[in-house]
Design a binder for these strands. Structure first.
Lengths: 344, 344
DNA sequence: CAAGTTTGCGCAAAGATTTGCATAAAAACA
DNA sequence: TGTTTTTATGCAAATCTTTGCGCAAACTTG
């Protein structure tokens, strides 16, 4: 019998009233008498009525869906951002559709298609590392769908975004090492077309500059910031005629790689080599020694991104003036960057 | 002007053909001539036509949405399960709605409401640790929506589920320690109403039994498996008149807690105390020593869960006979359970 | 050339809900 | 009692797409 779920018209029929009255009663519309409302609510509960969001969405031109694209949710950072997103989105009545690009631009394009197909009302995205063009986002723009970037933004793009002050983060991290007495500081940096890596590197340079230290190009190691890259990076640095006494890495993952290889080689951390990472991943508290890292206010970032979307949605005149929110990072000092003994 | 996006009827109007022809052309229906199809496709592309999934869903009575409830996505396990879920779901044309219960049964109830409201076609769920009743799932059953549990199932419930052979995992882990020469093996175990902890414990007991060893109740530490619980647990064990020489923990998190406290106290791992965890979290490869752990085939679990859902969907006669899929765990031996030196 | 088959396409209903406008009944007022 | 106002409800259109059925026209076949 009950091949189909109970709909609003079923309620209307059984109560002998019109469909529109039921609709309004369920929405607690003021122009419906309390008596009728109560009747409707009672029957709705009895019949386990479940409003059909698709029909409502169709009529109202809304889906209550918010799309999110992140590179991955393996680590701590994006996971927490997503948490922040979900919290605020839920409050605003949105369901969140999460897609992982797996750091792959082709995947990212597919994700966009998926989300557009699902009729999302907005898209929040943090770019894959391999993304260097913007073409696949044109479609989103064309359809007037609010688009908010977070953390990773393509450089020089005029879009709404919430980012942290990566330069400040890099600066603080490097300055911290300098204050602790380290003087020959290396840097692991990522693809320079991404704002985050570019700015962290800039912070590193600024700190060196402030201390009147020269920038030694051979101490800057370009890579993709994986654990293996960290191993390779430290291997390279140790092979130099004059190895560094500290490394500031733009990612915690490569720091772990570095740490493991250093231990293997018998280099003591932080006595012989200090390490500072970026992102404040959970595992920074699991290693030995614990890792100093820059915290990124992940949850706040997610919350801010949703709020930005909500603002853009309000301005339905279509010409969203791109806005930008900048969060302040926070250096978490732990064992891997202890005072340099011979300087103390 | 273009307040509304281009719809199928716009195409029809501009081409001077009927709506139904356009619909069928877009669907590549055989009874439409190639010429017409090409015309339609061309215009559709030119006008950036985006099919409205909600309208289609409404008509077909489908949403293409699959709901997932997990306790959290902080760690490695659920993250990977979700990855597996997404892969198979995407192939079957489903979008995935992910909810986190934060290990809280109240949240879990809300998640259910959310998903039902979103008109999901099925729900995959892994229970929060605090969930001890099933009432909030009744609604799902009532609406004939396929429900699949994975990993954490309420004990004694007759529902479809995909789990790993936790007993076997606990058995292998404990047997491994026994083979390596450890004889006084403690166990950190979680809430016994959850299948996973109960079965892991059973595996532990079985292995002891096989070796003819007595079960020492004071060596079994009941807790919630957090990092802090691990610290408390090891603190307790070390305070015993006759402390253990190894610990098998039902979670990697409490192993890390244990490891940190052991280091603090100067107890060597694995010489003085071997450790084996469960879940094969990413950070098991970041600690020193690396942690031996039981791998749970996370991605496979996610895939299997979706496949189970798809099967249930097929049997639209409504009486899904609950099915169960059991995956085999895999012991990953690492440094924390090295051979006991005085036995080697 | 008549009868039968295929091909290409349109009509209209259906799916669940919202909402502007109209209408009826009831209440208030003169 | 007649007129105005208020209150509660219904009608019907609108949202966009899919699909069963029917109708011609164009072929094929005997």
């Amino acid at each position: 019998m009950a091949r189909t779920r109970t709909s609003i018209s079923d309620l209307a029929q059984q109560l002998g009233i019109s469909i529109s009255t039921v609709s309004r009663a369920l929405a607690d519309h003021p122009s419906i008498s309390d008596a009728t409302k109560k009747k409707v609510w009672k029957l709705a509960k009895a019949l386990h009525y479940q409003p059909n969001h698709m029909a409502a969405g169709l009529r109202k031109g809304r889906s209550n869906l918010l799309g999110v694209i992140v590179p991955h949710i393996d680590g701590h950072f994006f996971t927490m951002v997503v948490k922040g997103i979900e919290a605020v989105a839920a409050k605003a009545g949105y369901n969140v559709l999460i897609c992982q690009s797996n750091e792959d631009v082709v995947h990212e394009q597919k994700n966009i298609e998926t989300l557009l197909n699902a009729q999302v009302e907005g898209i929040l995205v943090s770019l894959a590392r391999t993304t260097r063009t913007f073409t696949h986002f044109e479609k989103v723009r064309m359809q007037q769908i609010p688009l908010v970037f977070f953390d990773r933004v393509l450089d020089g793009l005029d879009v709404s975004a919430v980012v942290i002050d990566d330069r400040e983060g890099g600066y603080q991290a490097t300055k911290h090492l300098l204050e602790r007495g380290y003087r020959r500081i290396a840097h692991f940096c990522g693809p320079q077309h991404l704002n985050i890596y570019k700015n962290r590197r800039q912070g590193y340079l600024d700190a060196l500059h402030e201390y009147g230290l020269p920038v030694v190009e051979e101490l800057i190691f370009n890579c993709d910031m994986t654990l293996e890259d960290g191993e390779r990076g430290i291997d390279y640095l140790l092979s130099l005629p004059e190895p560094p006494d500290a490394v500031f890495s733009s990612s915690d993952f490569s720091v772990v790689g570095a740490l493991q290889l250093l231990k293997q080689r018998g280099v003591r951390v932080p006595q012989d080599m200090a390490l500072v990472g970026f992102s404040n991943e959970t595992f920074t508290s699991f290693t030995d020694p614990l890792l100093t890292s820059v915290d990124q206010r992940c949850e706040q970032m997610g919350q801010a991104a949703v709020r930005l979307f909500l603002e853009m949605r309000e301005e339905n005149d279509g010409l969203f003036s791109p806005r930008r929110v900048v969060l302040q990072p926070d250096l978490m000092v732990r064992g891997s960057s202890g005072t340099k003994p011979n300087q103390a």
